[in-house]
């Protein structure tokens, strides 16, 4: 199957390691997933609060480009960033549900020489790895089983909500299955989909910081020695603010937080630099089998 890859802005910035490790894993698994040429910002959550229709039009432009790229083949567009994944899915649903919106967007796209027929399927890499590639093939690619690694799989909010397309929205399992397939132990914990604070960490720091802290604390309490994330903003909040959390909450919180694709890359024996391990603030070396 052919895929198109939509990295989104964050994966070219703070989430660079997500981009690097994801592409490396695509390679290792022999997947055809070229980057969507000419892609633009998805509209993102903050943008939605300025002008919703414009945000939808921005998202739709990417879908139109993807459709163009694949001609008549079914188009599977992989969107690893949770916010992009949500917005791209949401515009699909809302264009189908709200006629007025569909009309405005279709006409606007037409004016800049684009067309969208609604045929793109927006996929999260977790979905693709577990449901398309399959756990057996993943297991077969493991050269360094992650023995002793206790992973708290953190899905965050927007991967499973509001569109639980491929996993349960209350107790998702795909990342846990993936981690177990890599030889690690997925820790059962209750906050898998609780919000990390999102942009609040930047705007209302007191609120955002506490939300992230709650997650790290509970994961540690349940015995995790690493947290896996599927979203660049979650990873940023959970990892880069740990120093600040130690100061604010007087707690010795110190838990490596890596993209789930970095953990996959490690198990596949990929070189540390190729999967961006050097970009992490909290070194993963401390965690078993990650050194």
């Amino acid at each position: 199957m052919r895929y198109l890859y939509y990295p989104g802005c964050s994966l070219k910035g703070t989430g660079k390691a997500y981009d690097e490790s994801l592409v490396a894993v695509f390679d290792k698994l022999g997947m055809d997933a070229k980057e969507l040429p000419g892609w633009n910002c998805c509209g993102a959550t903050a943008y939605m609060s300025v002008d919703e229709t414009k945000a939808f039009a921005l998202a739709a432009r990417n879908l139109a480009l993807a459709e163009q790229e694949n001609g008549s083949d079914p188009i599977h567009l992989i969107a690893p960033c949770a916010a992009c994944y949500l917005v791209l899915n949401k515009v699909q649903k809302y264009m189908a549900e709200y006629g007025h919106l569909r009309e405005v967007i279709a006409n606007s796209l037409k004016a800049v020489g684009l067309n969208y027929h609604g045929t793109v399927k927006v996929r999260h890499p977790l979905d693709v790895f577990v449901n398309d590639i399959g756990l057996d093939k993943i297991k077969a690619a493991v050269s360094h089983p992650l023995k002793g690694l206790k992973v708290a799989s953190y899905y965050g909010c927007q991967v499973v909500r509001p569109y639980a397309e491929f996993d349960d929205q209350y107790n998702p399992q795909t990342m846990d299955q993936l981690m177990n397939a890599l030889g690690a132990d997925a820790v059962d914990w209750p906050l898998k989909t609780r919000c990390c604070g999102g942009t609040l960490t930047g705007t209302v720091e007191e609120a955002g910081l506490r939300m992230s802290y709650i997650l790290l604390k509970e994961a540690s309490k349940r015995g995790a020695n690493i947290m896996a994330t599927a979203c660049p903003l979650c990873q940023f909040n959970l990892e880069c603010y740990q120093g600040k959390m130690r100061g604010t909450f007087g707690d010795s919180i110190d838990l490596p937080v890596a993209f789930f694709t970095q953990i996959m890359g490690r198990a596949f024996g990929l070189e540390a630099k190729r999967i961006g391990l050097q970009r992490l603030f909290v070194p993963v070396k401390a965690a078993p089998a990650m050194a």
């Binding site: 802005c9 910035g13 633009n40 910002c41 993102a44 903050a46 943008y47 300025v50 930047g202």
Partner: peptide
């Protein structure tokens, strides 16, 4: 928050991307 939202808007309008 509203400032952040507006800054996102400007950035995207200029470059097609948001620069965090």
């Amino acid at each position: 928050t509203p400032v952040l939202a507006k800054e996102f808007f400007k950035s995207v309008l200029k470059t097609g991307r948001s620069n965090e």
